[in-house]
Amino acid sequence: MKSSIAATIFASCLFVGLPTTTVAGSEDVVVENAWSRASIGINRPGAAYMTLRNTGTDPVTLVGLETPLAMMPDIHETKTDANGVSSMAPAGEIMIPPGESVSLEPGGLHAMLMRLQTKMVEGETFPLTLNFADGGTRTVDVPILGIAARGPEG
């Protein structure tokens, strides 16, 4: 389904002779309430949270992350099964339908920051770049809150 839409778009772009990058939608993504927790040293992975709102009319797909803070940032998802056992795994690509939001929040999706290069210090911020399927990128400054923070307000 997705690939057939892509193929159609690609074909119509070829037809009118436009570069495929004009089918972008990622410029319509609004990033809100980004936050993360301070780290103890650099050995433990960090996590960052935020809400991604797609204000456009096309679906937008988040495909990856980049940050000077961590060598291996990735989008992860925590799941808790019927027995109360929690596990965490790479979430793959995240599609945000037009007019909708996707929340990265504790116990669900998170930006997993593996191989920290520097300690995450409370009160500082770090840049996190979101890469989208249309080639667009968005860099957000993520505030670092205390280790015991529960949400964007602390």
Partner: peptide, 17 residues
């Protein structure tokens, strides 16, 4: 475990609350 970035700090801060 303390190397847990999501569930454990969330549980500990929930409990603290």
């Amino acid at each position: 475990f303390t190397y847990c970035p999501d569930v454990c700090p969330t549980t500990l801060s929930d409990i603290s609350g």
